[in-house]
Design a protein around this nucleic acid. Structure first.
Length: 132
DNA sequence: TTCCTGACTCCAG
DNA sequence: CCTGGAGCCAGGA
């Protein structure tokens, strides 16, 4: 469930609450030792152009139960851009390392190999795929 | 209400 | 691969 601060409905193209919840659901589905990026989640949710909003949802994930493995979400380059937003700047990297994800210089190694694409992994059929 | 900022991404150079 | 500029949605002052 979302905290009251996130539940104030504001006129928008889509239901924001549903959006946040979807983000959390997807992130929670990320297998241990795998990572994904904001854009894929955004595209999977249908927002596409709003990857930043996904990150914003992550920002609120720390106050949501069950806990969201936000450390498995990095930017398109595999860079741990959100590490500074965790309890400690090293927590994100430590969590990834603990799962077997090698992180060097705040960047996920073998990112393409560890990349977890919700579009594919969740077997979602979308008529408008990324591109032809 | 408007303006600024941001856990992003794409396009150009 | 890196850097700068523009676009995107939401929240705070």
């Amino acid at each position: 469930m979302l905290p009251p601060s996130l539940r104030k409905a504001k006129t928008s193209k889509f239901d924001k609450e549903n959006f946040f919840e979807k983000v959390f659901v997807v992130v929670k589905k990320i297998p241990r030792g795998r990572v994904t990026n904001y854009g894929s989640i955004a595209n999977y949710l249908g927002t596409g152009l709003s990857a930043r909003t996904v990150g914003w949802a992550m920002n609120s994930s720390h106050m949501v139960v069950p806990p969201i493995p936000a450390h498995r979400v990095v930017n398109r380059n595999g860079l741990l851009t959100g590490k500074n937003n965790f309890a400690t700047p090293t927590l994100m990297e430590e969590l990834l390392q603990a799962e077997g994800v090698d992180v060097v210089d705040d960047k996920v190694q073998n990112f393409e190999q560890l990349f977890w694409n919700p579009m594919i992994e969740l077997n979602v059929k979308k008529k408008s795929m990324q591109k032809a």
